[in-house]
């Protein structure tokens, strides 16, 4: 196990999530892509903690923040999907492009 290995795993998870966030039509699937991207951040922070400065707690605190972001992102995402679905019967991104230029 090396720092590079951890970061490569983090990059792979991030990019798989990026593909999902860009390509999925369903808003719920798009959120799964976002979760995978944050998951990559968690793995990268754990790698930095373990291989650069395990004596300081900064890496662990970063992991905690990323996990919180994951949970809050999912809660807000589902609330937005519910509000959108209730107001307009929409559950795909293509029909929710009101802000596209």
């Amino acid at each position: 196990m090396t720092l590079e290995a951890f970061l490569l795993l983090a990059a792979a998870l991030f990019c798989v999530g990026l593909y999902g966030a860009l390509s999925q039509q369903s808003i719920v699937m798009l959120m799964m892509g976002l979760e995978l991207m944050v998951n990559g951040l968690v793995v990268a922070a754990a790698g930095f903690w373990s291989f650069v400065s395990p004596g300081a707690a900064d890496g662990q605190v970063l992991v905690l923040v990323a996990i919180t972001v994951m949970a809050l992102e999912m809660a807000m995402g589902f609330a937005v999907v519910t509000a959108l679905f209730r107001a307009r019967d929409v559950d795909v991104t293509d029909e929710a492009g009101d802000l596209s230029g």
Binding site: L8, F14, C15, V16, L18, Y19, L22, S23, Q24, Q25
Partner: peptide, 25 residues
């Protein structure tokens, strides 16, 4: 099909991974 712009998304994420891996290594 549950996807849109699949090829573009693949290109973007593949490029991002290549750039990140190059930086990491």
């Amino acid at each position: 099909t549950m996807t849109h712009n699949r090829r573009g998304a693949l290109a973007v994420s593949g490029t991002a991974f290549a750039a990140l891996a190059a930086g990491i290594l």
